[in-house]
Design a protein around this nucleic acid. Structure first.
Lengths: 166, 166
DNA sequence: CTGAACTTTCAGTAATTATTGAAAGTTAAT
DNA sequence: ATTAACTTTCAATAATTACTGAAAGTTCAG
């Protein structure tokens, strides 16, 4: 397969994966492009490579910087901003996991805890309490595992998680 | 807090969580409703409880059945279909994980493996190979952990995963 | 200061995704 | 074979989400 074709396919696939995980297609594509790029890229380059507008590029690059997986760089003598994606997959996974836990899991745990307090003895209320309790317990445990992962390094993962997989 | 209010809040929250994970809001809400319902519910009841149309209810209930987390039941003497959600959170998590792995992770691994074969020695191509290789390696490892989880029971999780969390 | 080079914002628009509701399809009792 | 009870489908429409591009904002060299 031609390199250009492979590159295209990689960027496309990453975009599709992103959108099935609630990350917008363009954001995932910009990340993919930066991931395979050995050099820092300017906004212009990203725009022309992905055929997107300046506004779109700008907003999605900013989002990637908010996630902490893309950084801004400068070239001496140039006024433009350039962007670079961290290439360490473990580090990327940790950062994404951390953000999603903070944005999505933690608020849910808070609500579930709040809802556990409902009063009553009817079958309906009993089932509600049971379900909410079970979900809270599950989600909290999940979050501890996630948290451990976030604070770990690749070595830890090998030593522990991969061991139990065998 | 009133039960009715709690119920409402639970269904709403579950809907929001669902949509940030690429599952549509209504599907998540129907699931939430069934999860806290001790009895099987008819399409009518789901429609009126969530204020949605028949078509919408039907399509999303079917999707939940495809995921294997909702089942169809009958009441003697009644012709209508009734629906019930499995209440075992571990079982639900396993089924969802299994489906998402199959639908999303496995196809990506296939594409990455395909892309690993690109030929060339330029810096650009070297970075491409490196990134694609790292992603493939990460994703495959992730998938083994996921697979182990899918095949596990709650007891396994306690014994192993929770142990390393401490 | 000034203005050129660049970045950000955001109202308008396009694209995508979800929902409705009525018609077509199915099933089973009579 | 008919029909009432029920389910499924799907074209039309609504709701949501993403994108564009031009205008406003910022920065900094001269």
């Amino acid at each position: 397969m031609e390199f250009k074709e492979s590159k295209e396919k990689f960027i496309q696939s990453w975009g599709v994966l992103g959108s099935s995980w609630g990350i917008n297609r363009t954001m995932a594509q910009i990340h993919a492009l930066l991931l395979i790029s050995p050099e820092i890229l300017s906004t212009e380059e990203i725009m022309s490579e992905l055929q997107i507008s300046r506004g779109n590029a700008n907003m999605n690059i900013r989002a990637l910087m908010d996630w902490g997986i893309v950084t801004k760089h400068f070239k001496t003598g140039e006024r433009k901003d350039f962007f670079f994606a961290d290439k360490d997959i473990w580090e990327i996974a940790r950062k994404i996991t951390k953000e999603r836990s903070k944005r999505e899991i933690e608020p849910v745990i808070r609500i579930l805890n709040e809802l556990k307090g409902v009063e009553g003895e009817s079958a309906e209320i009993k089932q509600f309490k049971q379900t909410v309790g079970d979900l809270e317990s599950f989600t909290s445990k999940l979050n501890s595992v996630v948290d451990k992962f976030v604070k770990s390094d690749e070595h830890w993962f090998y030593k522990n998680l991969l061991k139990i997989v065998k």
